[in-house]
Design a protein around this nucleic acid. Sequence first.
RNA 1: GCGGGAGUGGCAGAGUGGUCAAAUGCGCUAGAUUCAGAGUCUAGUAGCUUAGUGCUUUCGCAGGUUCGAAUCCUGUCUCCCGCACCA
Length: 952
Amino acid sequence: MPDFKAIQDKWQKKWKESKLFEAEIDRKKEKFFITVPYPYISGSLHIGHARVVTEADVYSRYLRMAGKNVLYPIAFHISGTPVLGISLAIKNNDKDKIELYKGYVRNYVKSEKEAEAVVKSFEDPWKIVGFFIPKMVDEFSTLGLGVDWRRSFTSGDTIHQKMVEWQFGKYKEKNYLIQGKYPVLYSKSLGNAVGEDDIIEGDTNPVDKQEFTLIKFKYGDSFIIAATLRPETMYGQTNMWANPDVEYATAKVNGEKWIISAECAEKLKYQDKKVEVTGKLRGKDLLGKSCTAPFIDREIPILPSTHCEPGIGTGLVTSVPSDAPFDWISLKELQESEAMCMKYGLDYSKVKSIQLIPIIESKDYGRFPAVEICKKMGINSLSQHEKLQEATQEIYKIGFHTGVMIDTCGRFAGMKVIEAKDAMKAELIKNKKADIMYETSRPAKSRDGGEVIVAVLDNQWFIDFNAKGWKKEAGECLNSMSIVPEKFRKQFEDTFAWLDKRPCARKRGLGTKLPYDREWVIESLSDSTLYMTLYTIANKVNEYKLTEGQLTPEFFDYVYLEKGGLEKVSAKLNIPEAQLKALREAFGYWYPNDHRHTFTAHLSNHLSFMIFAHTACLPKEKWPKKITFHGMVISEGTKMSKSKGNVVTLLDINNRYGADTFRAFLCNSTSIDSTLNWESDEVEKMKTHISSLFDMCNEICTNRKKAKLGNKFAAFASRFENDVKKAGAFLAAMNLRDYSNIVLHDIPRIYRKARRISEQDIPTLNDYVAERYVKMLCPLVPHYAEELWAMAGKGFVSNAEWPQHDEKKINPMAEFSEDSLEALSSDIRKVLELAKIEKPKKITLFTAGQWKYELVGHVKKLNTRNAGEIIKSVMQTQLKQHGQDIMKLVPKLAEKTPEFVLEKKDEEKALKDSVAALEQEFNCKIEIIDAEKSQAPKARQAMPGKPAILAE
RNA sequence: GCGGGAGUGGCAGAGUGGUCAAAUGCGCUAGAUUCAGAGUCUAGUAGCUUAGUGCUUUCGCAGGUUCGAAUCCUGUCUCCCGCACCA
């Protein structure tokens, strides 16, 4: 077995030394600029990252060999809050996170002590970035990528930030940016918006924002405020619930006197409301009194229930017992307990007289869904909290999707719940009878232990995708692009239609500050939509040592848009004209992005934004040309996750399998848009497969003799030429699976078969395939290919020319004859087996009568498959005389018409040529007889391409 | 719920109107080579049947169109992905 590791290291080093993949402008060649999404840094790279870069590499290696001037760069994304979250966790001494990162770091440093020190340093987020980026470059490199690393950068680099500033300047100019109110998850202790990564268990148990409608119930000169998720149930209200044990607050909210829980008053301060707490009020004190329900304008009593939680909503709940399980059970408990009514000084008879009011009919439920579901689930006490919650969700879900308002609901009768909800809410708010409050879907804490609530920011920046004209241009761009597979185009169209205003900045996280409002950091999906442009110039910007002060909007206006005039810009920015010109030239030459290869998950955000960004900032000819998608990656049949322990990292790959095995497995195990299942057993098999392939090629390359390949190899040559042709075509279409099938399986198979034709011709055969085969292997297994190529001593195969096929040698007839002969020998074997003849004395082959060839030829020419029509047509010819046989043959022919039919004389010749081989195989005499000249009953069975067989 | 996608043999995965019992690979069975293993080679791998044949069943399920359906149409079931500030 070859030492794949030594071979791999050797060639990766040589490529690097010779700057093989450092792309430069070459006007003689057509340029091709391919990109993949830059990875976000978070620990080690795994096979999910590897898939996209490797597929792009195989493809771009082909294009390079096919004569294109290929630029394939990779950069790194560091924007956003996850890195910050890691820092924070480490700072807060989060044991799990520290262990996790120590685990990563230990892969790269020598001692435990050193690892600890490195992880400690991660309290500074930039140290995380600084540590991992070089490691990631190294890990990617072990895959044998043809990447131009000189052009790499991170989204935290000056060049990136200045470009994003330019981009957002353009957005601002075009009025694509607006400000407005927006609810966000917010940590009171951090004084900042928080994301999933900042919240404890935010990744496993995500926190959502819920929108409550606050309903105002007139109560003296104040309002009792009830919070509800179901404003459509107004017509079903029977009473108000207050928790007797809770202390409520009276507060002035935007000038009105509200009664709400103290917690609620606190939260509302964050939700763009003026709140001034003026007093306290016990829940008990409200009981037995009444308040006026808006909308239905009805007096309803205030009753006690412990299901009102001060921490949720306002701590006061309006009761709709027909549709809310909690309300129904609370009411039921009260109605069944005179003692409880006495306790709170309520009039028991009045409480007992409360009747449910039906309002909604839903699928599978009658007029009182809450009652029904409680009965069904056996709920009869408020203490069954979890079951009640479940019941509530069920009723809510089914009511929302299938419910219809019934005749008790005034002018909303007949309306679907889904519509009535919004209509009633809007009307309430319009008449100032309701307000909005946001609440988290579960109690949550940020990593530092502070409470997470929902805060409304009133100066949130949005990108307005509905800004005038933008969607039209984006649509135009999409129409001009090629999307592979094409089925994803519809999803783009849907996404475009649905995109509206998107918050694009937050108050924390790594990234670029908004140029005209510097307390905001551009959010990480919004800052990574135009960075591909930077690959064209990043190496030069470094080389020229351009500084922040030089990378102004004028710089990008000139380099990207050729605006401002060379002399003027050069003088203003203090950049030599030659340099500025070179930068402009580089951008002009390499851009647009010809091909972006990426994961489907990016479609509805990154890729869509990317298209919008390009149309906003760049002229049409610089818009992206093509997007291809790959499928997801799973490991041992399930999703990769740390907890399952099935994450396969690039370090694992490098240690256990090597790049070529990985590449071969990746390309060969599934088509590009399907899910890749990483199974180590299968990978092991691939490893042995390609190493035996390497041994085979080794022999092909060393045992060679230049000579003309004889005619007996016509079928082989035909298949090989065809494979060369198809391999190129498959690669050009980025069909990596079919391509790899050819080089990994098909060629070895036909080659091994051909070797058996004649031992003494093997060196000639080897010489025939050697050079082209090694070239064809190169995109897939470049290290092995270089190693083999080195035997010929002609430089790198990586930039050799893609092999041409010889169309003249493609000979379907030769292949067909070979196939027929194989079929014949298979048939003979079967006959012998069935006839139980172990050692045949003689085998007679009958060729079909001339008329049968004519018949098949005739049928093939007809463009009908209808047996009746075929017979009709045939009977009008000379063949009529064989009428009886034809009646039997035609139905079969109609069903299965052979692809090829040789002339009778050609078939006889082919048969004669193979007599020797057959005689050798079966070790007996083979005789060929024309069926028309034989009386043997078997002879009648002969068909064109399928001689009758008689074994004795 | 809305939107998108997918269901093929023991497995992975081709095939989108005829040459399809369905490529290729893996697995499995038998044989060859080999000290042995690995590898390679050869044959086979839905069922029944047979001198190489024929028949039946099969491409999630149920119907339909057609001379002919894995492929087109209708209905239905199941699974996967996205649904926004999260990279």
